[in-house]
Each structure stands twice: as C-alpha cells, then as structure tokens.
Amino acid sequence: MISREELERAFDARFPPEVQEKLRRARVAVAGLGGLGSNIAVMLARSGVGHLLLVDFDRVDVTNLNRQMYLIPHLGMTKCGAMEQIIGQISPYLDIRTRVIRVTEENAAGLFAEYPIVCEAFDRADQKAMLVGTLLRSCPQTTLVSGSGMAGFGDANRIRTERKLSRLYLCGDQQTDIGDGMGLMAPRVAVCAGHMANKVIQLILQDEGAGQPGA
C-alpha cells in the first residue's frame, strides 16, 4: 500500500505548499452522485480536497455507465459505496463520509451543515431548486455550486459558470433540458462537472476562508 507521505510528495510541486494545505483542510459536500456528482467527487479527490461528504440514495444501474464514473463491477452497489471504492483507489487517505439517503427540504440543512461548500448535482430540476432554495435560506454560511443545462451534444462552449443570487454559482448552459429526444452524454456532463469542480477549487483557494472549517 502506498504511503500517505508518498502521495503527498506526488502533489504537483510547482504549486506553493499553502495551496496543498488549503485543499487538504477544505470540506466539500456533493449532493447526488450521477454524471455530475461522480465526476466532481473524483476531480476533487484528485485535486487533494481533504474532506468529502457524498450523499445519494440510489444504486448503480447499467444506464449510468454512459456518463457516470462507475464500472460494470459496481452494478447494484449503492453509489455511495461504489464512490468510496473508486476514490479509495485514487486518494486512500482522504476523509470521505457518505450518506445513503434521499435529500428533502426537511433534512437538507442538517445533512450539509458542516460543509461550507455544497455541490448540487441532482438530476431533476425540481430537486435542484429544492436543495438550492433550502440551503441558501437555512445555511447562511454555505456557498452553493449547482449544475443546470448540460444535456445533448450542442456547443460545449455554451456551458459556463455564472454567479447568481447571493451565494450561488450556476454551471451549465442554463437551457438544454432533458426530455423526449434529448438525453445526457458523457462529454457535456463532464464539461459541466469540470466547471463545478473548478469553481469549488477557486472558492477554496481564492475566496478567503471558503471551504475551511469554521468558515
């Protein structure tokens, strides 16, 4: 088994040490482990984010393989359990917590209270609105990064990151809905997940205190 020290030494040494330290202290939650969430969690783990909370009620299904991080051996596992395995193969010393639970208006504030940055990575538009509205209202210290509009195979340059409302960053083209004749494909979903993960890292490294305990 590779040691913690070996892995830490392997972090891109061209960054100054405080970059690695800030990332290691950061606490980020990912709500939903589908195409967006599974990609975001892996990117944050690779980037050295030290504390992750992953929340999803669902199990890995064969229809997930077209765009989500899972492999055939994960079929039937909870997405939380599968992500623990995958991230364990990338960053085994990361503090990863998982909750197999459906997020509701009632439990959202309690679930995410200890995580100053929360990624909304749900599939359904009404669930996205529910989580963003609930956390902006009841967790005044939380910054949200959310995805809206990444279906299809249209121009990937239309996917962008925009600041909205008071503490929300919205990633996506804000338009392309899923529905009859319009599904999800790996490239645009991954582009959107990349926008979200990058905004999280910017918040940790540039925004004074965001993502740090006690912030």
Binding site: G34, A125, A129, G147, A151, L165, Q174, Q175
Partner: peptide, 10 residues
Amino acid sequence: IEILQFVGGG
C-alpha cells in the same frame, strides 16, 4: 426580485 429556473439533467 431574482428568479432562477432550473432545467433537468445531472
């Protein structure tokens, strides 16, 4: 007033 409407997919 600010109104934000989400679309599906994730």
